[in-house]
Design a protein around this nucleic acid. Sequence first.
DNA 1: TTGTAGGCGTTATCAC
DNA 2: GTGATAACGCCTACAA
Lengths: 355, 355
Amino acid sequence: MPSQPDSIDSTPFLARSSRRGTERVTMEEVARYAQVSASSVSLFLRHPERVSAKLAPRIAAAIKDLNYVPNLLAGSLAAAHTRAVAVIVPSLANAFFAATVSAMQRVLEQNGYQLLLGDSGYDIRKEQELAQTFLAWSPAALVLTGLHHSAACRQLLTQARLPVAEMWELGPQPFDLQVGFSHRAVGETLARHLYLRGRRRLAFVGAKLGQDYRAAQRAQGCRDFLQQVDAEPLLVIDLPDAATPVGGAMALRELLAQHQQVDGICCSNDVLALGMLFEAQRLGIEIPRQLAVVGFGDLPYAQVAQPGLTTARPPSAAIGEKVIEHLLTQVAATEVHRQAVQLDLGFELIERASS
Amino acid sequence: MPSQPDSIDSTPFLARSSRRGTERVTMEEVARYAQVSASSVSLFLRHPERVSAKLAPRIAAAIKDLNYVPNLLAGSLAAAHTRAVAVIVPSLANAFFAATVSAMQRVLEQNGYQLLLGDSGYDIRKEQELAQTFLAWSPAALVLTGLHHSAACRQLLTQARLPVAEMWELGPQPFDLQVGFSHRAVGETLARHLYLRGRRRLAFVGAKLGQDYRAAQRAQGCRDFLQQVDAEPLLVIDLPDAATPVGGAMALRELLAQHQQVDGICCSNDVLALGMLFEAQRLGIEIPRQLAVVGFGDLPYAQVAQPGLTTARPPSAAIGEKVIEHLLTQVAATEVHRQAVQLDLGFELIERASS
DNA sequence: TTGTAGGCGTTATCAC
DNA sequence: GTGATAACGCCTACAA
């Protein structure tokens, strides 16, 4: 047995055993290059100020020279936590959620976090699957849209020890955070608005109300208000397909054909309302004289539409920001005893010419 | 005290050393519960058919009972590859990219992959930062939007051994995959369309053309065509802010005020065009009689707009699908010698009443 | 088919 | 402040 055991297997590069590595530059190599230990490199990466002024520049140079990119997988495994937040939205194609996700991405990035994105397609089951998959990545936190989740999903997330947020809706039994506003109040506000403008026979046009719980709540808000003032009951039209301007146009035709007495329409969102505006124009219906139309979302075109579209503006971007801000706070907080927070960001009635 | 040796060190749970774990159920625990070895559980998870009919159900039950969620971090580290694909888009708020990302998410999920999303805000530098961060997660592949990247970014991605795709644009020096179409051709097609309809004084209205290279190429396509047929040179208006309907409306007013002779406008996209349509209506300009307007994107409202908006339809969703499909193929292929692929998905001219 | 023994690249602990 | 050393949870030859 020789005195320098190292020389025996002095072909360490060939001897890389059977195991294939990533072939990437590793922290070990950076350490060798900088003539320091791996621990120092690690420390430098996480707390640069704690490393001496002597080593620091050497390490920095080595990292630069070798073009070192730390392996977050290994780091996260060792540290037992990641800098990633998983987000599940019902539909990315929906401008509302796109705006929220965009805002989240911005704030996350500012804090050195990554965004894991999932699209549930308004499907509770798929949401659960996505949540499970995400959990396997050990994200620092998870964000769901809405309050309706499968029982299995609720259980899964309760067991997992990570902060869970729900957004775009408020209600009982929050996990750790809820950021949203009252859709019911939106419906009431919109109905009241139309009522005050003298409209007495209102209709609500939505799409897939069975899946879009928030839209259904807005409809309910309308209904409640009308009942409250003892007005004609709300006429509800539920389109079978996702909300599109074409759907809105069709709905208007149908409405005019079968319920001529309607004088005010509350659309599930601006997308439908836009289609109606165009269709009304085509049919020679004067808005708002003959028919008032209001929407939801205050999408970019609501302002320039002809006539301008009265609508309720949700705090799409603010929701994203607040969710992430609070979530990151909770992540930092001691894992135990973090209080559930509920944030009502409200909404804004934007009155324009369409009503 | 039972005779089982297990009882000897029966405090293994306290003995968890000083190291704090995730507190999550581990594969080891599943194995103990199912009375098998950890490797059998691992095998079962990856190749259920290769495990005997005796153990399989036991393992499955254990997983279910314990509510086991595999730790992908550990798995990926060991396997030296992940089931995640990173995607960087210029703006999620843009409906085009939202559609593409949505499609990608769908296909990825079908294949058991995860989507890592980044938003560069049309900023080359931020794109590079995002790419670097993503690389730290060792994604199986990376997707960029467009062809303009910083030199550092190009180098970073060339060094990394993962398949890199560029989308929404075609050009020289592809990494491993390019999926898109010719924006120049779009511009030419649109200009020709207007020309054939008798328009002779064309304008192109865009927003931030200095950053939106693709829109700039469409403008160039228009310009080229006009030069080709020896027509009046293209009048280009470049809005300083992101494209919005409001911007489109403003642009129209400006255009009419300063260049009354313009009889055809090619908008950078449907968003601007929509604003113009409304503004024209407001100003009493007859479209298409006095002025023809065409857009790009065929967004949902183009069809119901009044008048219907002539536009070029990009293969937004198809781009997402193809990118992922090909990328996953390349991921599976032997890491060496994977050929660069270029895919021209084309576009479609949708002729409607606005021109 | 099933089990055993490293090792993946990093972080965290603890002496020095 | 710096550097060994032991996890982190899983995968994968390889042996049984």
